[in-house]
Design a binder for these strands. Structure first.
Lengths: 244, 244
DNA sequence: CGAAAGTTTTGGACTGACCAAATTGGGGAG
DNA sequence: CTCCCCAATTTGGTCAGTCCAAAACTTTCG
């Protein structure tokens, strides 16, 4: 105890904003520095209010803020779990807003088009600079994709995986994150209508075309194959979004 | 707006999650539907607690959540301002986490490389499909850039603007947002070191090369000019980030 | 040794109160 | 009549204390 852990009266140099912000920052530091371990639960609120000599209100607010930032995962009645931030954390925090904008097809289409844009760049780069390992992975993903043609659920997964491999090629952690963002955000709409082995076979053919173009180091061909592939997909998914 | 919804009396039967979530959702709806107008202040907390017949604690929590999602802009002592969500809102909410990752390690570099990736695609597209207006805008931005060579502050701004024009070409609202995200996130480091008219002149030359390549509808040349340009910039900015 | 019952802890929510800053309303000076 | 300044009121931020039901932790018992 010894409540005197922090004399708050003696120091007033900066314009004191929110009291919780100070706590947020302190906890944040401790999470980043590792003083609070990843995947472990946060100390109890009553504990925290002692450590920071603040009221529960403030502590609570701080916790909520941290949770909003994704540094804590706060399930309703449970202890908040500490999450060290990564690019995935960042993407997660936007999830709720993106979700809102996806309800209007305008937003969904924008997002989809951005994906096309990104993947166009990815396949071009793959065509010009994919390593042997990259190509091996692509081949593997492609094989899995072919094997799943008859099972639409599995096909969906292997489809995602194939595209996912493309995102790993730049070796930039942002891209895999982006991929999972695209898939999780668009997934609900995507899943709802999907199906025939016929359709799957066509998709697979597209994938193969992309792969082949990459193998032949032909960026333009790879890009074009990718674009037509995605456009076909969109033509059957786009309409599932709200009209206006 | 006939959805009067239930007044939530005393019930314990349902697995009610967070009480504030219900309010969050209601307010969110009202913001989206326009019942609460963009850029106007939210009603007072005491008012809200009457409307939703909840305690101030809960109302407060709801407001905090909304603010965290970017639907409200809450300055410390002022009334929260209603913000209808857009892609910019989304990017804003990630700001704090991104900021964390920028301080450290290769986070900054990853971000920068992603920018290079994006702009490569942008200039390619510009080279193949820029409209007369796009080109006119580029020309204008370029002229402004040249005129600012002697004034490093102004040069920085016109530099950003020039790149910004590229992000408008796809006519996808995500891209301008992305541009402002890149600039605001990287700005602090970028600003801290820049300077000589000498350096500016070189940058301008790069911009001109990009512009010329676009004019000549040469995607490869445009891309290459862009890459060398950004790499030069990075070589003088990158080191300003924390080592490891 | 493990499962059930019991006890303590903890997060969610509410009330009432206080303070300082923001907003508002009303004069009084120009 | 307008504009600015100062009180009166509102409002956001914070605190302390209380209640409750669900988790988490103990202990007991089969």
């Amino acid at each position: 105890m010894t409540k005197a852990s922090r004399p708050k009266a003696t120091e007033n140099t900066a314009p004191d904003g929110r009291a919780s912000d100070a706590i947020v920052e302190r906890i944040q530091e401790q999470i980043l520095s590792g003083a609070l371990l990843h995947n472990t639960p946060l100390p109890s609120e009553r504990d925290l209010m002692e450590r920071f000599s603040a009221s529960r209100t403030v502590v609570r607010e701080a916790v909520a803020t941290l949770a909003g930032r994704g540094l804590l995962e706060a399930k309703p009645r449970y202890r908040p779990i500490i999450r060290k931030p990564g690019f995935d954390t960042a993407l997660n925090t936007v999830g709720s807003i993106v979700q809102l904008m996806l309800q209007h097809q305008q937003g969904a289409e924008s997002l989809f088009l951005s994906r096309v844009f990104v993947e166009r760049g990815l396949v071009r780069d793959a065509a010009t600079s994919a390593t042997r390992e990259n190509i091996a992975e692509l081949k593997e993903a492609l094989a899995a994709n072919e094997a799943a043609i008859m099972d639409s659920d599995a096909f969906y997964d292997t489809d995602m995986d194939f595209h996912g491999v493309l995102y790993t090629i730049p070796e930039n952690p942002i891209f895999p994150t982006l991929h999972s963002a695209y898939t999780t955000w668009l997934a609900p709409h995507w899943r709802r209508m999907k199906g025939s082995p016929e359709f799957n076979r066509k998709s697979y053919a597209s994938h193969l075309a992309i792969y082949t173009a990459i193998l032949e180091r032909d960026p333009d061909a790879a890009e074009e194959a990718l674009v037509t592939h995605l456009n076909v997909s969109w033509s059957s998914v786009g309409p599932t979004f709200a009209p206006e």
